[in-house]
Amino acid sequence: MASVSHPRILVFSTTNISDPGIDLAGSRHLHYPASVFTLSVPCSSAVRPGWIVDALEHGFDGVFVAADGDECALLADCNQRTARLVSLAQAQLTELGIAPQRVTMAALCSVCAEPFVNHMREFSAKLAALDPAVHAA
């Protein structure tokens, strides 16, 4: 399997909740494309919309924000906050001529190894179906 053919995905993941889930996927040797990179933040609501834009302008084809769902120990409403910043990022992307579907979010728990792998496969397939140029002509 040649990794270059897979879309490059940046995953924003949380230190306490989704990181252990993604670690578990590796510990169980569940395969997902090597073009998926994970970046840890304390809470998904700490992601700046500008970082999402930055990723898509610096080589990534998609950004996946792993939200904590109801598990976040820091902020009870972190899902709504994360949804808000994802919308803000999508608005900025649209202005820049980048398809807003290139960013998505989903809840990922601390044992969500298989769901993570499935999310990566599905998101990869969706990104592969888009125009390969991140910036629309």
Partner: peptide, 28 residues
């Protein structure tokens, strides 16, 4: 930098990809 759980163990089927990814993670 997590190049075991989030790299080598997850990409045992793709040595080239795993090496490229580890390189990116360390440079980052």
């Amino acid at each position: 930098v997590n190049i075991r759980e989030q790299c080598s163990w997850a990409h045992t089927d793709d040595r080239v990809g795993a090496t490229q990814k580890a390189t990116g993670l360390v440079r980052g």
